[in-house]
Amino acid sequence: MSLIVSLMLFFSNIKSAEVLPGLIQKGKASFYSKKFNGRKTYYGERVSSDALEGAHLHLPLNTLVEVTNLDNQRSVIVRINDRGPFSKGRVIDLTHAAANALGMVSKGIANVSLRVVGKGRAIALSPSAFSAPIAFQSMLEPVL
């Protein structure tokens, strides 16, 4: 019993990812197959291949994450709205629009870095603002 209480006290002092802007993770990214378009996410939303959204195993719903393709340095900000990926070695699953913005559609998988930039909905709900992702590169800080 005391072990459980000790663990609870230990983990209660750890801040969640939503209050740790700048948290960085590196790994492989993949993107949703077209067959998932319209299906429900873990949180009950519908997957839209046109939205800038993604799935992460641990980040909370509505966390905004800057994803940078380490091969070409292209970046996009996505909103976490699903759980996953469930393939070993992958850190994020992206919608087709986000994968296209990163220039990874032809390869299917890319080496990426993730940086938490905040919490919200506004950026991810307007994918038309990112129709020319290269034009917005100057607004995003590179992840080193």
Score class of each variant (00 low, 15 high):
V76N: 10
I80Q: 09
I77V: 13
N62Y: 15
R83A: 12
V65S: 04
V67W: 05
G89L: 10
V67D: 02
T63P: 04
N72A: 00
D82A: 14
L64W: 03
S87R: 13
Q73N: 10
N69E: 03
V65Y: 01
V65T: 01
R90I: 05
D71P: 04
N72Y: 01
V76F: 08
K88I: 11
S87E: 13
P85T: 05
F86Y: 14
P85E: 06
V78N: 15
V67N: 00
V65C: 01
S87Y: 11
D82T: 06
N81H: 11
R90T: 11
I92C: 04
D71E: 10
T63S: 15
R79T: 03
V78L: 12
V67H: 01
N69K: 09
N81F: 05
V91L: 02
K88W: 11
F86T: 14
S75Q: 08
V78A: 10
V76C: 13
V78P: 13
N81C: 14
V67T: 01
R83V: 09
L61K: 13
N69V: 04
V67S: 02
N81M: 07
G84M: 04
V67R: 01
R90L: 08
V91R: 00
S75V: 08
I80E: 01
L70R: 15
D82G: 09
V91W: 00
P85D: 05
R79F: 07
K88Y: 08
V65W: 01
R79A: 11
I77S: 09
R74I: 04
V76H: 06
R79D: 02
F86I: 12
R90C: 13
N62W: 05
N72Q: 03
S75P: 03
N81R: 14
N69I: 00
N62K: 12
R79H: 05
V65H: 00
R83H: 10
K88L: 10
R74L: 14
L70F: 02
S75R: 15
P85Q: 02
L70Y: 04
Q73E: 12
I77A: 04
N81K: 05
T63I: 08
N81V: 11
D71M: 02
N81Q: 12
N72K: 00
D71H: 10
L70G: 03
V65N: 00
T68W: 06
F86V: 08
V65A: 02
F86N: 14
L64D: 01
V91G: 00
R79Y: 07
